[in-house]
Design a binder for these strands. Structure first.
Lengths: 138, 138
DNA sequence: CAGGATCCCGCTAGATACTG
DNA sequence: CAGTATCTAGCGGGATCCTG
């Protein structure tokens, strides 16, 4: 497929984008994907045993405890626009909508899952470090 | 060292924290590290050939183009408090301050670097997807 | 040089109400 | 069920001024 070919070509002609530069588009993209809800949605959509997994809107809302409808919809739209997830609406009695990761979303999910796991794994260390820091500066 | 041992112990007793839950502390930690400046700072501090690399405040400010003093200082404080970076002040004529990654910060830097690279590598694809989406919905 | 302290604007997240 | 629309409070974050 053309996607893979183009990706390989960009890998060769590297340094085309640099997020360290303020004007670079990748800086804004980095800002978009550096988001709590993006991380959790991508993790949720790949949570199954296999690689990808389609979830309905209400299922996502249940998994991401505490997310508002606005943020969930807004984040999903953004991810869909960027080609990270696909939205499929099935015209049943009440309409059924499901979201699934694309290949691009799948590739980012790998890192997002690692970041989420890192936060969960190192929570105790961070908590301890904060206590140390706070008592030392108090 | 004790850090590695504790980390391994937590790896065995997994599912102690879950970022999917709103009340879980790891949700807030995930929110903190899911930040543009956090990503860029961690990347910058490990940018050299080796593993870690100490940088001065002004060097960081120059690398992260467009960052305000407030955000840079604020983010560095947060990272220091969480034990991801160490701050070293050398009492020279004008004081010299350098920041360096801790082992904990080093472990997170691996994923941050991957995320930053992902954004730069897939920028073209995302841009193309946006055009497709926008024209299709226009 | 490396910040601390303020002011203040924008915008975004959250709550609420409504709909195909 | 899966959203859209509207409103508002709160704060993230930039700009500016000051300092050890």
């Amino acid at each position: 497929m053309a996607t893979t070919t183009a990706a390989q070509k960009r890998a060769r002609t590297k340094a085309e984008y640099d997020a360290f530069l303020a004007a670079c588009p990748s800086r804004k993209l980095l800002d978009r994907i550096s988001d709590k809800w993006v991380t959790l949605i991508l993790c949720a959509l790949g949570d199954g045993d296999g690689e990808s997994r389609a979830l309905r809107y209400s299922e996502l809302a249940r998994m991401l405890a505490g997310v508002s409808q606005k943020m969930l919809t807004q984040t999903l739209r953004s991810l869909e626009r960027d080609g990270l997830v696909t939205r499929t609406a099935t015209p049943t009695v009440p309409v059924t909508v499901s979201y699934e990761l694309t290949d691009l979303g799948l590739s980012l999910r790998l890192m997002m899952r690692a970041v989420k796991t890192w936060a969960e794994t190192n929570m105790d260390d961070v908590l301890a470090n904060r206590v140390t820091y706070d008592t030392r500066t108090a």
